[in-house]
């Protein structure tokens, strides 16, 4: 099991990243990936430019923690998280999460879990430029709810086991 994480200004190529993660591991039967990209619209305003800031040091630590957490919950082989920072424009790729496993269930769940936790715990912030000037993007309550459902799922599993 390896957990790869990268924070970078450069773009990424999903096909190459998946190929690298599968390489030389014939036990992999499933690869789940998620890519998030910049939309040209947010909160009803047109977005021209986005700036992504992070907290170096803590970011890497949180991404490692999220990857390790996923590996402890599901039967997965390797994971990759790539997150871009700096100036981005509509259509640009922002984030990539990949999980490999023997069967699809573990890969799907691990990928979604890592993304939900990244959204609520990894120290990244978006500032967007609209026609009215610049503004920091506000955190969404729906992201907190998405992350919390993994905690309740864990409790349910424990209750059933107990």
């Amino acid at each position: 099991m390896a957990a790869y994480i990268r924070v970078q200004t450069e773009d990424f190529n999903i096909s190459e990243e998946i190929a690298a993660l599968r390489a030389r591991n014939p036990r992999v039967g499933a690869v789940a990936s998620f890519m998030g990209c910049v939309r040209d619209m947010n909160e009803g305003d047109s977005v021209k430019l986005m700036y992504l800031e992070h907290y170096p040091g803590m970011t890497e630590r949180e991404l490692q923690r999220i990857s390790a957490d996923a590996a402890s919950r599901w039967n997965i082989f390797d994971t990759l998280i790539v997150h871009r920072v700096g100036e981005l424009r509509p259509l640009d790729q922002i984030v990539l999460v990949i999980a490999t496993s023997a069967h699809r269930g573990d890969a799907f769940a691990a990928c979604e879990f890592m993304m939900d936790y990244l959204k609520t715990q990894a120290p990244f912030w978006k500032r967007e430029s609209t026609g009215d000037g610049e503004r920091w993007v506000e955190a969404r309550a729906s992201d907190d709810i998405a992350a919390k459902r993994w905690q309740s799922a864990e409790k349910q599993t424990r209750a059933q086991a107990g």
């Binding site: 907290y55 997150h83 922002i94 993304m115 959204k119 912030w125 920091w136 993007v137 955190a139």
Partner: peptide, 8 residues
């Protein structure tokens, strides 16, 4: 000290 995160 920082605001709630908004990455991804």
């Amino acid at each position: 000290i920082f605001p709630p995160v908004t990455g991804g």
